[in-house]
């Protein structure tokens, strides 16, 4: 059981919402209703770019109860990325057809929380768009702390402030403003939950700040969709079938397997969900673990690898596939 059933959609609207961010509105190819979803959910978008197949996760931003269309926002990472976001910016326009997965939620708000503190950096605002929609409808207590480089670089600042008023706090880096996280997290009552989404350094900072202030680990949540970091080519050997497959420098193991028709398990493709955990039979050198799923002990053991994110520097790795 790898991945999930895919649905064909058509791009109904594209809007430039910030300097490097576009919003895409997707409708079912036959205008059938889409699944409802819960706040914090994402979909995977399948992209065929030349001979490459990519599947990138994007948070759903619209109202969870709107089944007529899904909305995603994509930051153009330019030429330094693997090409998924650039493909969406350059090659996808109104009328383009794409394939998407059903929604999956790895970042749900805790229903028992007395209050929700949402901390976003840049494009990390996207999962909070649907989350705030849901929390607002349920009359839950929440506040957003949203850091952007500048008003031109930040998406939806004005919209969020007009919709949610004083519950939204925007911090402009070019004005020297910083999220005052210590004072925000230092003065919350018991039962408050904190959620952070943004660049990795920001997530690390937020998690460390919460820990230092004595927040219980179960009240702290984060989501980070990182693309599999590139590296040098290497070879994957499959123990069961005896096949050998080359993984190119900008490919993940999972992508290389798919290119060669190997049906490997996956779901989130961001190293978070654990679905693609694969046994390692043997390996040249050390595994570069890039996931957020395996425990430290599991990493050290070298017996497991998350094939959507992790790789080896060179040589070959034999997987239990």
């Amino acid at each position: 059981m790898s991945g999930s059933l895919l649905r064909r959609v058509r791009v109904a609207e594209v809007e430039q919402v910030a300097n490097r961010i576009k919003r895409f509105r997707l409708v079912d190819i036959d205008n059938a209703p889409l699944s409802e979803f819960s706040g914090g959910s994402h979909i995977s978008v399948v992209m065929h770019s030349g001979d490459r197949l990519m599947r990138n996760p994007y948070s759903l931003m619209g109202s969870p109860t709107d089944t007529s269309s899904y909305q995603i926002s994509v930051l153009n990472c330019g030429n330094d990325s693997r090409g998924g976001s650039k493909f969406m910016h350059d090659a996808v326009s109104v009328g383009s057809e794409l394939e998407i997965s059903e929604p999956l939620n790895l970042f749900p708000p805790c229903k028992l929380a007395r209050k929700h503190i949402l901390v976003a950096g840049g494009i990390g605002i996207t999962p909070f768009m649907s989350m705030m929609n849901e929390l607002d409808a349920l009359h839950c207590d929440f506040e957003l702390h949203y850091g952007v480089r500048s008003l031109e670089e930040g998406a939806y600042c004005k919209y969020l402030q007009s919709r949610y008023g004083s519950r939204v706090n925007v911090y402009l880096q070019d004005q020297g403003q910083m999220i005052p996280l210590e004072s925000v997290l230092g003065s919350q009552r018991l039962g408050t939950h904190m959620y952070v989404c943004g660049p990795k350094p920001m997530i690390d900072w937020a998690l460390q700040t919460a820990e230092l202030l004595g927040w219980p680990a179960e009240n702290v949540h984060s989501e980070q969709f990182s693309a599999p970091p590139p590296g040098k080519p290497f070879v994957v050997k499959l123990a069961k079938s005896g096949r050998e497959i080359e993984v190119r420098g900008h490919q993940s193991i999972l992508e290389a397997l798919e290119e060669h028709g190997v049906d490997a398990p996956f779901l989130c493709r961001g190293g978070a969900c654990g679905q693609c955990e694969t046994g390692v039979v043997s390996c040249d050198g050390f595994i570069e673990h890039n996931d957020h799923f395996l425990t430290e002990a599991e990493r050290v053991s070298g017996k497991k690898i998350m094939i959507c994110m992790s790789r080896i520097p060179s040589g070959s790795i034999t997987l239990d596939l």
Binding site: F37, E102, P103, L267
Partner: peptide
């Protein structure tokens, strides 16, 4: 449990 936490809509 790991399987169920990732159970998907419509599946």
């Amino acid at each position: 449990l790991k399987f169920l936490l990732n159970l998907q809509i419509s599946n």
